[in-house]
Design a protein around this nucleic acid. Structure first.
Length: 476
RNA sequence: GGCGGCGUACCCAAGUGGCCAAGGGAGAGGUCUGCAAAACCUCCAUUCAGCGGUUCGAAUCCGCUCGCCGCCUCCA
């Protein structure tokens, strides 16, 4: 078995990955808050999650993966004040919070499907909605209170950061002390918290908030961080193998998750924390929600770019590096996609189902090694393109078994592309034009054959002359 | 103010102490072709922001300078 290496934010090192339980990986990844469309930067993050899952599976692991959908708004500020983001959108759009959440959840899932990002496996094919796990959150808050790491104040139930810091290691993920984190002290809310560092587990006495639940401490709603702890531990156990999210989650969200979870269970919460870097815009500016306008998948479609091209585009950089977004860069990926698909279309049924040539195995090994090296997808992609080039050079397309295995990681659905080309039945009138063109070419009536080519192209077909006659591919 | 990251050819981007600095896109030339298309071949950074230093040897380690960015408030 080939070792799999991954960068662990906890140690700041690339480590060999070894799961707690042989053969099974428990994995929780942070999902979206559904109050705005998910932009391409978000999609890069979920694509990273998907690649990690697929690579683990390539290595023989069963991946138990949970992903949340935050459909109860937390505050626009992590502190006491601010407005609930979902409710803000709801008011602006004149809809209920549930309508807002449902709408953007649907949009999110459609984008996930377009990018062929696999859905969570626990529960099978389901995302965990925060609103459906409020009792689990309440139970977890109860455990934290029982162990003395939280207290009830009039405005809410708060996590006692000072006490936890005394007992443990707050800041071990971000490597920042609380003083460093809050050095500017911009957060000077007059509140009933014992310390300004304390964060809400449950919010009380916010009568204007639209979404409220009963709890042992009164009517209210959960704090931002608690859902991830509650849902991950409910489905995956109290110690997770892997937890991932965007780099921005390191200092606050994940730090607080660790504190909540470990104070409740007394066990390590996560063994490998993995964080992905951002997609940045043309000026090196983060494509963030607060920046206003940001590209979404539909913008790419409008530019004639396939969602699978965006997949390839993201493979072009390591997940831990910022990736500079531009339409030109994505178009380059589209060209690569066309190249790979073109090869797939040329692999006949007989070859696809017979063993690979001997020389192919070492290429697959190189791919596997690249991807196992902290998901070095740029290198892996280079191997794939080189493998296809080698197949052309040798005139030997017996590489399809390896390509199928490679595609379990790439997720481009190449086998379908191949099969569709192999079984393509042309409409009768198109077939007739094709036959006429072959006839014209035999007679060397090139004026006629060129006219027929234009005709076919205008009907959306790529026209290519081969020794076997005119070959047609539907574009797009 | 505190913490952290980045700067590799026209563009995207691997490589983090040692064969010639991956790969792709764009560009140039060529093979093939009736012409195309597809594919293949060749060319395309003596150089890794700049300046010093460590070393037998550095894009890779250290220092300084310049430039860019993220986090510290919700954010993938």
């Amino acid at each position: 078995m080939r070792p799999f290496f991954i960068y662990n934010t906890l140690s700041r090192k690339v480590e060999e990955f070894i799961p707690l339980k042989p053969g099974v990986v428990t994995y929780y990844s942070c999902g979206p808050t559904v109050y705005l469309p998910q932009h391409l930067g978000n999609m890069r993050s979920y694509l990273f999650t998907d690649t990690l899952k697929r690579t683990l599976r390539l290595n023989g692991y069963e991946v138990r993966h949970v992903m949340n959908i935050t459909d109860v708004g937390h505050m626009t500020s992590d502190q006491d004040g601010g407005e609930d983001k979902i409710e803000k959108t709801a008011r602006a759009e004149g809809r209920s919070p549930k309508e807002v959440a449902d709408y953007y959840t649907g949009l999110f899932i459609r984008n996930i499907e377009l990018l062929r990002i696999e859905k969570p496996t626990v529960p099978p094919g389901q995302f965990c909605r925060a609103t459906e796990h409020v009792p689990d959150m309440i139970a977890l808050i109860g455990r934290i209170l029982d162990r003395g790491y939280a207290y009830v104040a009039p405005s809410g139930v708060y996590f006692d950061v000072e006490k936890w810091r005394g007992a443990n290691r707050m800041g071990r993920l971000s490597r920042q002390s609380l003083e460093e984190q809050f050095s500017e002290q911009r957060l000077e809310h007059a509140s009933d918290k014992r310390s300004k560092h304390d964060f809400a587990l449950w919010v009380l006495n916010q009568p204007h908030h639209l979404m409220q639940w009963d709890s042992p401490w009164g009517r209210g709603y959960p704090g931002w961080h608690i859902e991830c702890s509650a849902m991950s531990m409910k489905y995956l156990g109290e110690t997770l193998d892997i937890h991932s999210g965007g780099l921005d989650h390191v200092p606050i969200h994940h730090e607080n998750e660790i504190a909540q979870s470990e104070s409740a269970t007394g066990k390590p919460f996560v063994r490998y924390f993995v964080h992905n870097a951002f997609l940045v815009g043309m000026e090196g500016v983060k494509i963030s929600k607060s920046a206003g306008r940001f590209p979404v998948l539909a913008d790419l479609a409008a530019a004639g770019i396939d969602p699978m091209a965006f997949r390839l585009f993201c493979f072009g950089a390591k997940y831990r590096s910022e990736l500079a977004f531009s339409l030109d860069a994505v178009r380059a990926a589209q060209t690569n996609l066309d190249y790979i698909r073109e090869f797939a279309r040329g692999v006949p049924e007989s070859i696809a189902h017979s063993p690979d040539s001997d020389w192919v195995e070492s290429w697959f090994d190189r791919f596997h090694e690249a991807v196992n090296n902290d998901l070095n997808t740029p290198q892996a992609l280079a191997v794939v393109l080189d493998l296809i080039g080698e197949a052309y050079r040798r005139g030997d397309k017996r590489i399809w078994n390896a390509m199928r295995r490679i595609d379990t990681v790439l997720g481009l659905d190449l086998e379908s592309v191949r099969q569709q080309a192999a079984s393509a039945i042309l409409p009768p009138e198109i077939e007739s034009l094709r036959a006429q063109r072959d006839e014209a070419r035999k007679r060397k009536d090139f004026a006629r054959s060129d006219a027929l080519r234009s005709e076919l192209q205008s009907r959306g077909y790529e026209v290519r002359d081969t020794p076997q006659g005119t070959l047609l591919h539907r574009r797009g």
